[in-house]
Design a protein around this nucleic acid. Structure first.
Length: 888
DNA sequence: CAACTCACG
DNA sequence: ACGTACGTGAGTTGA
């Protein structure tokens, strides 16, 4: 016999939305309601094994019910946007599952379900109706059960007529009368005021129906009689509204509702897209949504990994096999690789793996292993070799010869993927499921290295997976024309970064402390004055408390709100400054407090006891555009814009007496890149003549001569140029320039009229991104933009701006990376003692002995300028001094 | 652990 | 009508 499940889509998604905690995926999309819905759906399928399924949705704003009663569903809160954005997600998911869905203009989901269930019932089928709405109990019959969601959504309680009798003492059809008397505030159905469930049930038990109640009011007395008599029309209307219409003109047949089981080939990827990891797991899909093949599972089961834990006794076997080592894996713990603990080293030959616990690496018998690791002529493949290099370095073991880094390859293949773990990659490539490091070691305070056999087994499986992943990545890189980017740029750069980080930059600790003392007294004075004026002491670092003082106590106007309260950021405070003297002081406090906590105290903590330097860690696999990022400490955001902060740069000094800090930065690299990739003649012309680009922009946008460009025009032009690089929007520009959106739109239009090649580039790149799903840089670095065709305006707009910005920012990143590789080679070739220390996106910082100043002053900018030939010249400006501050 | 704020290119 | 400028990391609160 057939079993048909009919689901009230609107009702369930609403319940799910309010029952589930907020949940967003990595793209920022809300998914909680879809998640709850899906959970319930899977549970239903499991428990009831339906042969047919259908999810009905309400369609349109008005239904036939509005014809008789315009206030129907009036006064209802608007659907929250966090929920409305989930409707398309749910509909897409249902489709991928192979579950029919239906909506019909002018009718509600109830009516569709009522009609389908009536027809199915007449054919003798078994039907389960699932909803959160009690009204639908009226559909119950011998053939129709109604499942109501309980608390949450996954649990449903099924009602046949018998259960309804038990619970309410009513027949299913009397449920309509119940609502006729009670009404329903959520649908704006009036009912009789003062009659709730209790009274309504009493009346129905006595009289049987609304009509009978109204006909026999004589038998009632007091207030109740009065109310029922005055509102009798409402009761009749309410009953009518509550009656599910079971004669909807359907154009859908049962055949279209057949459910042969979850459509795995589409369900998996759809769940993966929504990032429902736990559901994927529950359904035994891979993290990428692929189903496990039978062969795969068999393979996983029989896969015995051969691993030898190396000691003094059996070391010879590994040493003899070193030539056959295909991959190494160094397991470390801790976030900062400069302070990482090394747990052990796996040397993998195929099919054997040799694990050396780290404490044994310093035994005398391990000497050949150490030599091998440090030999640059032996190519080594592995995962995160940059970290490996640093971790081993500080443990006194040299590492060289990195030839293939799986993490780096994974980053190039999808720079926005946050999870580059080996187990995630294993899933991506359909390899046997690998335990997550977190599960093997625990995380945070619970981190613990497990027993040797567990540990060596896990690391061996990880290594075996890496060995399988490498050729797949090689192919993917080649298919994407990224092989050269990987082998000739990123891999060599990885070693250079490690060298820079090991070298570190010297910091004058005493000067930094002195600066701290100075800041401290300024902070103290500011805090005192602020408390005095505010008339109370509070935590100045708490935006919540500060907001209370400013907007409640002092009654200043609220300029902007955050989702949790008042905004008190610098932009807001600037606007408030004219209203109250305390605001200036707070701004000053913020400035100095930031310098003190982040740059004085933060930096002091990072100075190495061993070297007296700070050793940042450049991350090569984080930024979606191809830029580097810098951590522990971040040396890419040392203050420069304001003089107070800029002084911090004085403490960055050469590490050898008599040496200098030399810095060179690209001038307008992003706009030059834009000139090149857009081919815009005006922009190219400007750079060929090395004009002031903002002045030139002002001239063309405002149609004036160079000498007539005033400071304000140049400022506007500069903002427009920034906007262009970021992927312009009138709104963004209007915010930045504090002008109206209309004015901003006009500026942009004038800009595009003046630089038509740029307009064409922006149009083309967005069009290409919509077609291809990704954009690329000059060196074929790739970024996928899955939301470029989204129906959600916000998501789509964001992706469009990203499509415009990424090739520009990313190509600039490509260029300085090339310059770094070339500089490293030049320093080696010329046998210079100068050292490259830092990279700050468009700037390179070196320490240079005095006798190399002259050559470096030429070599650095020339190398940077010729790193990559574009159709416009690149320009780099160099300067030097006794510290980073003076190198300006 | 999320939210807010702010430092840089 | 929709509502944001692009890319990062770190310190502080407060639930």
């Amino acid at each position: 016999m057939n079993k048909l499940i009919l689901i009230d889509g609107n009702s369930i998604i609403y319940r799910a939305f309010f029952a589930m905690p907020p949940l967003t995926n990595t793209k920022g999309l809300h998914t909680n309601a879809v998640y709850g819905f899906t959970n319930m759906l899977l549970r239903l399928i499991e428990d009831h094994k339906p042969t047919h399924m259908m999810v009905a949705f309400d369609a349109g704003k008005t239904t036939f019910r509005h014809e008789g009663y315009q206030e129907y569903k009036g006064g209802r809160e608007k659907t929250p946007p966090e929920l409305s954005e989930q409707f398309p997600l749910l509909k897409e998911l249902l489709q991928s599952f192979g579950i029919a869905q239906y909506e019909l203009s002018g009718y509600e989901a109830d009516d569709i379900i009522g009609t389908v269930s009536r027809i199915a019932e007449e054919e003798g089928q078994q039907i389960l109706v699932v909803t959160g709405d009690k009204d639908m109990l009226q559909l119950a019959s011998d053939h129709v059960q109604v499942g109501l969601t309980r608390k949450g959504v996954t649990e449903i309680e099924t009602y046949a007529p018998e259960q309804i009798k038990e619970r309410y003492g009513l027949t299913p059809l009397q449920i309509i009368d119940l609502k006729g008397l009670m009404g329903d505030p959520s649908d704006n159905i009036p009912g009789i005021p003062g009659v709730g469930e209790k009274t309504a049930l009493k009346l129905l038990h006595q009289f049987g129906s609304v009509e009978e109640v109204l006909a026999n009011t004589a038998e009632l007395k007091g207030k109740m009689k009065e109310k029922i008599e005055t509102h009798s029309d409402d009761a009749v209307l309410s009953k009518k509204l509550a009656t599910i219409y079971r004669e909807v003109p359907l154009d859908k047949s049962f055949n279209e509702m057949v459910f042969p089981g979850l459509k795995e080939e589409t369900a998996g990827p759809a769940l993966a897209k929504l990032e429902f990891k736990s559901l994927l797991e529950r359904l035994s899909f891979h993290a990428d949504g692929n189903t496990h093949s039978d062969e795969e599972q068999a393979k996983a089961a029989e896969r015995e990994i051969e691993v030898t834990v190396v000691d003094g006794e059996n070391a010879d076997e590994l040493i003899a096999a070193l030539d056959a080592v295909q991959l190494i894996h160094v397991e470390t713990s801790g976030e900062n690789p400069h302070h990482a603990e090394v747990i052990g080293v796996m040397f993998s030959t195929e099919p054997k793996h040799y694990y050396v616990p780290f404490e044994r690496m310093n035994e005398s018998w391990a000497e050949p292993l150490r030599t091998w690791l440090g030999n640059p002529d032996v190519p080594k493949r592995g995962y995160d070799l940059h970290r490996t290099d640093l971790a081993l370095h500080w443990k006194g073991i040299a590492f060289a010869g990195a030839s293939f880094d799986v993490q780096l390859a994974a980053y190039l293949l999808d720079p926005t993927e946050a999870n580059q773990n080996v187990n995630a990659l294993a899933s991506k490539y359909g390899l046997p499921v690998l335990a997550a490091d977190e599960d093997v070691f625990g995380k945070g305070a619970k981190y613990k290295v497990p027993e040797m056999d567990v540990l060596s087994g896990h690391l061996a499986r990880k290594s075996a997976a890496l060995l399988e992943i490498i050729p797949l990545q090689e192919k993917e890189l080649a298919d994407n024309e990224m092989s050269s980017l990987f082998h000739d740029l990123e891999m060599p750069l990885s070693r250079i970064l490690a060298d820079m980080e090991k070298q570190g930059i010297a910091v004058n600790k005493d000067d930094l402390k002195a600066l701290g003392t100075e800041f401290e007294s300024q902070i103290k004075s500011l805090v005192e004055q602020i408390y005095e004026i505010a008339g109370t002491e509070f935590n100045l670092n708490s935006p919540k408390q500060l907001g209370e003082i400013l907007f409640v106590k002092l009654g200043l106007p609220v300029v902007k709100k955050t989702k949790t309260g008042y905004s008190t950021d610098a932009e807001v405070l600037e606007k408030l400054a004219p209203y109250h003297d305390v605001v200036r002081l707070i701004l000053q406090y913020r400035t100095i407090a930031k310098l003190q906590s982040t740059y004085v105290e933060g930096l002091l903590k990072e100075i190495s006891e061993e070297t007296g330097k700070v050793h940042t860690y450049y991350r090569q696999t984080i930024a979606a555009t191809g830029r580097l990022s810098s951590q522990f400490p971040n040396l890419q955001n040392i203050p420069i814009r304001l003089e107070e902060g800029r002084k911090i740069r004085k403490v960055f000094v050469p590490s050898e007496p008599g040496w200098y800090i030399l810095a060179a930065d690209y001038s307008q690299i992003e706009l030059r890149v834009l000139a090149h990739i857009s081919g815009d003649e005006g922009l190219k012309e400007a750079f060929l003549h090395d004009m002031d680009i903002h002045t030139k922009t002002a001239m063309d946008v405002f149609g004036v001569k160079a000498e007539d460009v005033d400071a304000n025009m140049r400022r506007s032009a500069k903002a427009v140029n920034f906007g262009i690089v970021y992927g312009i929007s009138d709104y963004g520009l209007s915010q930045n320039l504090n002008i109206t959106r209309k004015e901003a739109a006009q500026f942009i239009d004038q800009y595009f009229d003046a630089f038509q090649g740029v307009r064409k580039y922006m149009d083309d790149i967005v069009r290409d991104a919509k077609r291809d799903g990704y954009v690329t840089t000059l060196l074929e670095r790739r970024r996928y933009l899955p939301e470029i065709n989204a129906s959600n305006f916000n998501l789509r707009s964001f992706a469009e701006r990203t499509a415009m910005n990424t090739p520009i920012q990313g190509t600039a990143a490509d260029i300085i990376k090339l310059a770094m590789v070339q500089m490293d080679a030049a320093l080696a070739k010329e046998k210079l003692k100068s050292r490259m220390l830092l990279q700050v996106h468009d700037e390179l910082v070196f320490e240079v002995p005095e006798d190399e100043l002259e050559i470096m002053k030429k070599l650095v900018p020339e190398t940077m300028e010729h790193a990559l030939a574009l159709s416009v010249p690149l320009k780099a400006e160099v300067s030097y001094g006794v510290n980073w501050y003076e190198a300006k």
